[in-house]
Design a protein around this nucleic acid. Sequence first.
DNA 1: ACGGTGACGCTCA
DNA 2: TTGAGCGCCACCG
Length: 103
Amino acid sequence: MLAAMTPFPQEVYKVTKCIPRGKVTTYAAIARALKNPRAARAVGNALHKNPFVPQVPCHRVVQRDGKVGGFARGRREKIKILRHEGVKISNGKVEPAFLIIKL
DNA sequence: ACGGTGACGCTCA
DNA sequence: TTGAGCGCCACCG
């Protein structure tokens, strides 16, 4: 069931859900979309607890420098999924071309 | 109410 | 360029 949660995580999931397949964005970009540019860390926290997987494609969220970042089921798995979606990853970093800064 | 924690980010050496 | 350090925010016990 949908547990009552603070508005912040809800907004995070809402935005993340809009990330198209084969593309990725950053924690900072999401924070920015929420008008909370300093909350990148909190965004990661919310995604970590993401109860709507895989409805909410949290695996499409990476770090600002392109590094894949963390994943509840392991970075390894996260990379695997992204590659499966066509996202090119070299040396643990996604090609900037797949990055969506504007949401 | 308070302090610790975490899927981050920027600055500086 | 890469790594260490510090700051930031929201959540939990």
